[in-house]
Nucleic acid binder design. Structure first.
Length: 261
DNA sequence: CGATTATGATTAA
DNA sequence: TAATCCTAATCGC
């Protein structure tokens, strides 16, 4: 689940649930036992999300830095919270809920200066008001790498993952192999606009659904029916064949008709 | 019940 | 390019 929309939604939900009051911590794995003990009883001051990076600011000038990676989860448990999984990296418990972190790529207590250090490695984030889209446009139009690789490069645009890459390129009618340099500024601006639109929808729905709802309820869209080309054999727009091939180390998906090479 | 797979990213070779 | 980390849902037998 974790592309940028997931992280921004978590930042919001964690703030709403936990901020302003002391949190209790719990842990099952050994690797963050010390960190959990340090945080126990501290007040969550606020949260921040940049691309796929999540920052929880605690009173006492310390930041809990979390990156979920491929398989990490941060799940809400209404109180009384169930017995945690043996894999629990960290539980943060507030007055009405507990949040269980499992499988993250990173879970570290750091100095607040880390936020700026991470920001310096990232391209503009379509979900942030302070994003500078022209940086994305310039990076793409200057590169000979395929647009499919550039969209996954977090230093070019922050927060896009494999699902949004496939779906945004399909919505734009662009083939993943098109070199960045071959695109017009207008085409790249359209990619940015689609990224903003789709990621915002993702935050709102807490789920990636790029097909038009057409009056249907979100809950009625089945698993695998949510996308035009990602993990599809046939394009959900025109019914033609979807071709799978590796671009930028990951499987890319493109409709032979909607996304001509 | 074991094998496979995944919406990520870094490090080593 | 390949190996590695980490977990849980899904799939085939």
């Amino acid at each position: 689940m974790p592309e940028g929309h997931t992280i921004h939604r978590l930042a919001r939900d964690l703030r709403d649930d936990l901020a302003g009051r002391p949190v209790r911590t719990d842990v099952r794995q050994d690797r963050f036992r010390d960190g959990a003990a340090r945080l126990d009883g501290r007040v969550l001051a606020g949260t921040d999300a940049m691309g796929k990076h999540l920052f929880l600011h605690f009173d006492g000038d310390e930041v809990l830095y979390v990156h979920l990676g491929l398989i990490g989860k941060l799940q809400r448990r209404p109180l009384p919270a169930p017995e945690p999984s043996p894999n629990l990296r960290l539980r943060l418990q507030g007055e009405a809920s507990a949040w269980d972190l499992t499988g993250p790529m990173a879970c570290e207590l750091r100095d607040p200066s880390l936020v700026d250090a991470v920001a310096a490695t990232l391209g503009p984030d379509p979900l942030r008001r302070d994003a500078r889209p022209q940086r994305f446009v310039d990076a793409v139009t200057a590169s000979r790498k395929p647009i499919g690789a550039l969209l996954l490069d977090q230093s070019v645009i922050a927060g896009i993952g494999n699902v949004y890459r496939a779906e945004i390129l399909h919505l734009a009618g662009l083939h993943p192999d098109r070199p960045g340099r071959s695109l017009t500024e207008d085409q790249v601006r359209e990619l940015w606009r689609l990224a903003v639109e789709q990621l915002r929808l993702g935050v709102k729905r807490n789920r990636i659904v790029t097909v038009p709802l057409g009056g249907r309820r979100l809950a009625s869209i089945g698993r695998g029916d949510s996308w035009h080309v990602y993990k599809q054999e046939r394009c959900r727009t025109c019914g033609d064949e979807v071709v799978h091939h590796a671009v930028g180390n990951r499987t890319s998906y493109a409709c032979t008709t909607c996304q001509p090479a």
